[in-house]
């Protein structure tokens, strides 16, 4: 199951004009001269520039704002029907890490106002999750910095309370967020490797190690459904509630609920809600 880094598949809703790439001018003679490496570098730069124009984690907005961006009724109607339930969303940057970043923020949002839960999450990372990493054979030098990034966020959340994750020192902190995303990726990979019997049948012949290396451990590769199911079980403290919106004729969104195999020490912080549109995840929030 080869899933390429399809992190630029996120299509702008019809009706918006920002973020539209300008087609290159037709210099077909010049284009024939440039080699694969140059084409690749230019494409990569263009994609990165487009992604970097968006916030890592955008402001909390009513879902009706998103519905208004759509003209296509199949999308618009579904989002409007969700908006009527008073849901909010936070747009997440489409850089290939959106599902991971949305889950990171969703988790911090669930526990942010409860210091005990933040402490508990810290101690689980230190004991339970680190144990899975060790069991799966991850080298300490490869993972310790990323666990530290997650700790640092949790420490600030404990010290400053829920306003920390509303502040720019968190929202614009690429290094801490991305480090914590790698931490989530690694524990997900480690969980799959230590529960290979449950995951192998879904990999269509690809080895567990290859699947994890290509789809999970590598930064900026978009999460597929299997990765998210494994993430939930690896965290073992939350469930995921994913609303799928697509161009089909149905009136309402399709909902998938992912529960962990078990909750570690009966710790259930609640449910993280994600909004999926083809190629992209955003975070859904209650008012």
């Amino acid at each position: 199951m080869h899933s390429p880094a399809n992190y630029h598949d996120y299509t702008e809703p019809t009706g918006t004009t920002d973020g539209v790439m300008t087609p290159p001018q037709d210099d077909s003679e010049d284009l024939q001269q440039i080699d694969d490496m140059t084409v690749y570098k230019l494409t990569r730069e263009l994609q990165d520039n487009e992604a970097n124009k968006r916030s890592l984690i955008g402001s909390k907005l009513p879902l009706s704002v998103l519905a208004n961006e759509y003209v296509d009724p199949s999308f618009k109607n579904k989002i409007e029907s969700m908006a009527s339930n008073g849901l909010y969303y936070r747009p997440i940057r489409g850089d290939g890490n959106c599902a991971w970043r949305a889950v990171l923020y969703g988790l911090l949002d669930l526990i942010g106002s409860n210091k005990e839960q933040c402490q508990l999450m810290k101690s689980l990372l230190q004991n339970y999750h680190t144990m899975i990493l060790d069991e799966a054979g991850f080298e300490k030098i490869a993972y310790e910095d990323f666990i530290d990034s997650f700790y640092e966020i949790l420490d600030s959340l404990i010290a400053q309370g829920p306003q920390y994750i509303e502040s720019n020192s968190f929202l614009e902190n690429t290094e801490l967020q991305n480090g914590s995303i790698v931490c989530l990726r690694f524990i997900t990979s480690a969980y799959i490797k230590t529960h290979s019997d449950s995951y192998e049948p879904f990999l269509e012949g690809e080895s567990i190690d290859s699947y994890c290396a290509r789809n999970i451990e590598a930064f900026s590769v978009e999460a597929d459904h299997l990765s998210l199911a494994a993430l939930v079980s690896a965290l073992a403290v939350v469930s995921l509630h994913i609303s799928y919106i697509d161009g089909s004729n149905t009136e309402s969104e399709t909902i998938h609920i992912l529960n962990p195999d078990y909750y570690v020490d009966q710790t259930d912080f609640g449910s993280i809600k994600l909004l999926y549109r083809p190629g992209h995840y955003d975070l859904l929030l209650d008012p």
């Binding site: 390429p4 880094a5 790698v182 690809e206 290396a213 290509r214």
Partner: peptide, 22 residues
Amino acid sequence: HPPGDDPHMYETAAERWSPIQS
């Protein structure tokens, strides 16, 4: 090269870049 991120697009199972490499 990270997966999916390579000018030659080889489809081999060869080891790619990820943060576990060194």
